[in-house]
């Protein structure tokens, strides 16, 4: 994201609503959750517990993957998964 200069920045420390959506919190991640579709039973425990709304689902409410733009790699999804369908792996493995 290109940072704005002082002339283009809104004054008074003001930030418009919902701008948190533009922040790529996925950059903070050091551990990556890797979802194994073959093990997943779509119980949605991970979807309920994810603090960053990063478990992607389809129209039928089935898990389709993980949104790495927001996922900070906290690992809650892997912890709560009853089928060990999510594995936490170091980001270094993906460089």
């Amino acid at each position: 994201m290109k940072l704005k200069g002082w002339k283009d920045l809104p004054p008074a420390t003001v930030v418009p609503a919902s701008t948190a959506e533009e922040v790529e919190t996925g950059q903070w991640r050091s551990m990556r959750p890797v979802w194994d579709e073959s093990k997943c039973i779509h119980c949605l425990q991970c979807w309920i517990q994810c603090p960053d709304r990063s478990i992607k689902t389809d129209e039928e409410g089935k898990v389709t993957g993980i949104d790495y733009f927001y996922c900070k790699g906290c690992g809650i999804c892997a912890k709560v998964c009853p089928k060990d369908a999510i594995e936490m792996r170091p980001e270094a493995d993906f460089i």
Binding site: G5, W6, L9, T13, A17
Partner: peptide, 22 residues
């Protein structure tokens, strides 16, 4: 709706002070 006083670290604090100076 707007938010006042959000965190502005090394990225924007300086620019906000410059606005005050102006």
């Amino acid at each position: 709706p707007v938010a006042y006083g959000s965190l502005a670290l090394t990225d924007y604090y300086f620019e906000i002070k410059r606005q005050q100076i102006e």
